[in-house]
Design a protein around this nucleic acid. Structure first.
Length: 600
RNA sequence: GCCCCCAUAGCUCAGUCGGAUAGAGCACAGGUUUCCUAAACCUGGGGUCGCAGGUUCGAAUCCUGCUGGGGGCGCCA
């Protein structure tokens, strides 16, 4: 079982301090934690909360607790400062504990038992099959796949689900465009990636409609959507097609299958390049009728009510919101919420999940509040198990993405652009290198940089995507972390060539600040990864990996801390420190979905 | 109109279930190369934590009000 050494040491110290307090009455357990303030040591404890009951000043309490703390073998110094107890570890003793742990324990790889045995469903990506994936999907995919990887590292059994919106008006638009303008072509015959070809058709439709609207609708001051739904011949054709689809019209269904196939196979290529894979694919064409039985049963149990027009509604005041939410139209047909309810219950029956996480943008915050509220009334056991991983929109340097205006960053094109940038940089530094190898490294840096950049912000934060920054090596970037990993490997290769040290390692000698910083970063890693998994905060993972990389960079750049050429017992200890850093970095990069490079 | 989110260094962002003198990256200024990859490292300046009150031993963090920005409030998805 993975052992979080840092947490264990803190718990051990806290127990000692708690025992002292417990002898003097009831007190809240000590909040021993790394101090926010720099230079205050390795751990700190505010003693103010105990002042009232102990009837002693915080400073006096800190002084007495310092006496207690000093008896601990790992504590080198314990100082009372302004009512705080500041503890500093004995660097040598810490290194002797930390190195054997970091070299062998699974916790140093980010594994824990925090979600042991739990079954967790993660729904993400959720594309429409009428156009290719864009930057927004890219963030969604990276968030979802990383949350899944984190949950798995925490011991959970994870089911990754892609919910594909493969039916509806927007799909029919592409289909109609194909009928009109496609001339029987195929993606192969026109030499276009298949999902992009479908997207071209969608754009073709929107263009045709815009022209129609401009001549027939706009002059009379009609709203665009209203025109589409009432007078537009194109709109009428789309609706006819949708009705034919629902009626199971053979010809329409055949075209639909063909074009969805194009779209989905194109998506598959994109997923493959991004290194993601789904365990389950739900398609709305199969789920859109789900939920009706659920509504009927709920109506019986008075979870829902029928409003005067005949629609079935849920009174949102029952979940602290305003208004009513229709879950069935007055003509008896489903709305989006109906099928979402049905799908959720189906998954509950199918998987019996402990958690279901929906990775969906924050514009749907309200929808999920409503959805979860209703689900908890229908199936009370889901209470506390449903999570909306809400994330902010990604913007371009020149403003917000607007798919209607065709102002989008296509996911495939973006990856190509990043690859080209990374290729140029790699080629410049390695003029004589084999071209395939430069491409291989460029791809790792491009995709790694993209993922790291998309993950390093808090999920809730919207941000501007910056291509140059995302593949930069300076600062908090993917390539920086990959570089640290590569340097670790390089040192070990050079060491092997120079001859491994014969002495056994003296870990207690690793007391240089550069060495201690690496040890601290390695020890902090498990806790950060665990929190990232539990609280759905992948940015803690990027930060924790970066902290190891940064500490390690300072180490391998310092003249005092060289491995090769050092006294044998020290060289052996440093070599193990390098191995430990490399081991955790590799695990961290894998969790981030990044490819570690042996050389850069 | 109502609801939710946001406002922190020149820029981009962490920190928000209360803890000390608020952090990182970028940018900027200076320095390091007979030394395991200088795609790196080191040093430095830089802050009324949007504004005003309140609670507390202690507030970027909690409460109230205000200002400014984003999103939402469909028998759309």
């Amino acid at each position: 079982m993975p052992k979080d050494l840092h947490a264990e040491i803190i718990a051990d110290l806290a127990a000692t301090l708690n025992a002292w307090l417990a002898e003097r009455g009831n007190h809240p357990p000590v909040a021993l934690a790394p101090p926010t303030r720099e230079g205050a040591g390795d751990l700190a404890l505010p003693c103010h909360p105990y002042a009232r009951t102990l009837r002693l000043s915080p400073q006096v309490i800190a002084t007495q607790l310092a006496e207690v703390a000093r008896t601990h073998p790992l504590v080198a110094a314990a100082e009372p400062v302004a009512g705080f107890l500041n503890l500093r570890f004995d660097g040598a003793a810490l290194a002797r504990r930390a190195l054997p742990w970091a070299l062998t324990d699974d916790a140093a790889l980010g594994r824990s038992d925090a979600l042991d045995g739990r079954r967790i469903l993660v729904e993400y990506c959720s594309p429409n099959t009428n156009k290719p994936l864009h930057l927004g999907h890219t963030r969604n995919i990276v968030l979802g796949s990383t949350v899944a990887a984190l949950a798995r590292a925490a011991g959970a059994e994870v089911v990754q689900i892609n919910l594909i919106n493969d039916r509806g008006v927007h799909i029919c638009k592409s289909m109609l465009a194909y009928q009109r303008f496609g001339e029987g072509a195929t993606p192969e015959s026109v030499g276009r990636k298949s999902d992009h070809y479908v997207g071209d058709l969608y754009v073709r439709f929107e263009k045709a409609f815009a022209e129609e609207f401009k001549t027939h609708g706009e002059p009379r001051g009609i709203e665009k959507d209203t025109y589409f739904n009432t007078e537009s011949p194109l709109g009428a054709e789309v609706r006819r097609m949708l009705q034919a689809w629902e009626a199971g019209d053979a010809e329409v269904r055949a075209l639909w299958r063909t074009m969805n196939g194009w779209c989905e196979s194109g998506f598959e290529a994109t997923y493959g390049r991004m290194g993601v894979r789904f365990d389950q694919v739900d398609r709305e064409s199969q789920t859109y009728l789900l939920g009706k039985d659920l509504i009927a049963a709920g109506l019986e149990r008075e979870v829902f009510e029928r409003d005067p027009s005949g629609a079935v509604v849920f009174d949102l005041s029952r979940i602290g919101l305003e208004g009513k939410k229709a879950v069935l139209r007055s003509d008896g047909t489903s709305v989006y919420t109906t099928q979402d309810l049905g799908t959720a219950v189906q998954r509950l029956d199918q998987h019996g999940f402990d958690r279901m996480i929906y990775v969906v943008g924050n514009e749907q915050d309200h929808h999920f509040q409503v959805l979860f509220g209703i689900l908890e009334h229908l199936r009370p056991e889901v209470k506390g198990r449903l999570f909306h991983m809400s994330y902010g929109m990604v913007e371009l340097p020149d403003g917000k993405m607007k798919s209607r205006e065709g102002k989008v960053v296509d996911a495939d094109n973006l990856m190509d652009d990043l690859h080209a940038l990374a290729y140029a940089a790699a080629r410049e530094r390695n003029p004589d290198m084999d071209d395939a190898e430069v491409h291989r490294r460029a791809e790792a840096i491009a995709l790694g940089g993209l993922k790291f950049f998309l993950l390093k912000f808090g999920p809730a934060t919207g941000f501007v995507f910056d291509k140059e920054r995302s593949i930069a090596l300076e600062g908090e970037t993917g390539a920086y972390c990959q570089y640290a990993y590569a340097r670790a490997g390089s040192i070990l290769r050079k060491l092997a060539a120079a001859g491994e040290p014969t002495a056994s390692p003296d870990y207690g000698a690793l007391t240089l600040p550069q060495e201690q910083a690496v040890i601290h970063a390695l020890m902090a890693f498990p806790g950060e990864v665990r929190t990232a998994a539990l609280e759905l905060k992948p940015n803690l993972l990027t930060k924790a990996v970066f902290e190891i990389a940064r500490a390690f960079a300072a180490f391998f750049n310092s003249a005092e801390a060289r491995v090769i050429g050092a006294e044998p017992a020290i060289a052996a200890a440093r070599a193990d420190l390098v191995r430990a850093a490399r081991r955790s970095l590799e695990a961290g990069l894998h969790l981030l979905g990044m490819t570690p490079l042996e050389e850069m």
